[in-house]
């Protein structure tokens, strides 16, 4: 899954994004509201972790922008502001969760997964679609109960496609979602094609059907019917 981290403390930001990338996520770290707004405008994120006290204003602005845009991003506020009033303001603006600093990484991680489950899998720990099952916390998936061995990128790709069922995803969106925002620097997205091809092959080998439809010139769509 792809995470946007808005945190002005460079050291904490670095540690957090390193931690997140280790647990199978793409994490984009920015240190100011202006950079966060730019990111939100250009890219999509599964989860946004937002600090409130930032050098150029209140992190709530980023939440407002996400809500204005109608983004499906899950929002967790991470802040040293512990007053009930602050929490209520944050949640009322549109945040899904509030985690006061200091916190344990494991707690943050649990909340991220919990929010992700709620947003995409109705809160279930595992997600099943016909013969395909995904266990996000374990980074595992299976077809007809048989273990499906995927590379990290293939797994991310399948999770992204599945959590956006019946939605056409263009190649650029897929690339920036799975490989990181920097990927809009490149012009050729042939590598996306290679990964989709490999994923299809592996699903097929395990006896699954091909639900990934190629949309000419645009990208891919995971079709549920």
């Amino acid at each position: 899954m792809k995470i946007l981290l808005v945190e002005d403390d460079a050291e904490l930001g670095k540690t957090l994004s390193g931690f997140m990338e280790n647990v199978n996520s793409t994490c984009e770290h920015v240190q100011s509201i202006s950079d966060a707004l730019m990111k939100v405008d250009l890219y999509e994120y599964d989860i946004a972790l937002i600090d409130r006290v930032l050098p150029d204003g209140d992190g709530l602005e980023v939440i407002k922008e996400l809500k204005n845009k109608g983004a499906k991003t899950g929002i967790i506020i991470i802040s040293a502001m512990k007053d009930t009033e602050d929490k209520v303001t944050g949640l009322n603006t549109g945040a899904d969760d509030y985690l006061p600093k200091p916190f344990h990484f494991s707690e943050l991680n649990a909340r991220i997964f919990s929010l992700f489950r709620r947003l995409h899998f109705d809160g279930n720990k595992s997600f099943h679609f016909k013969e395909i099952s995904i266990y996000p916390e374990k980074f595992e998936c299976s077809i007809n109960g048989r273990d499906l061995k995927l590379t990290r990128k293939e797994y991310d790709l399948l999770l992204f496609l599945l959590s956006n069922k019946n939605r056409v995803l263009n190649k650029e969106l897929i690339a920036t979602h799975i490989w990181g925002d920097n990927y809009d620097l490149v012009d050729s997205f042939d590598f996306v094609y290679n990964h989709v091809k490999n994923l299809r092959k592996k699903i097929k080998e395990r006896g699954g059907s091909d639900y990934i439809k190629t949309i000419y010139g645009i990208g891919y769509k995971f079709e549920s019917n």
């Binding site: 490989w179 920097n182 990927y183 490149v186 050729s188 042939d190 590598f191 290679n194």
Partner: peptide
Amino acid sequence: SFLLNFDDVIQSM
């Protein structure tokens, strides 16, 4: 870290 991140494009090109 940039090169690692862009390994897929570098490979495909």
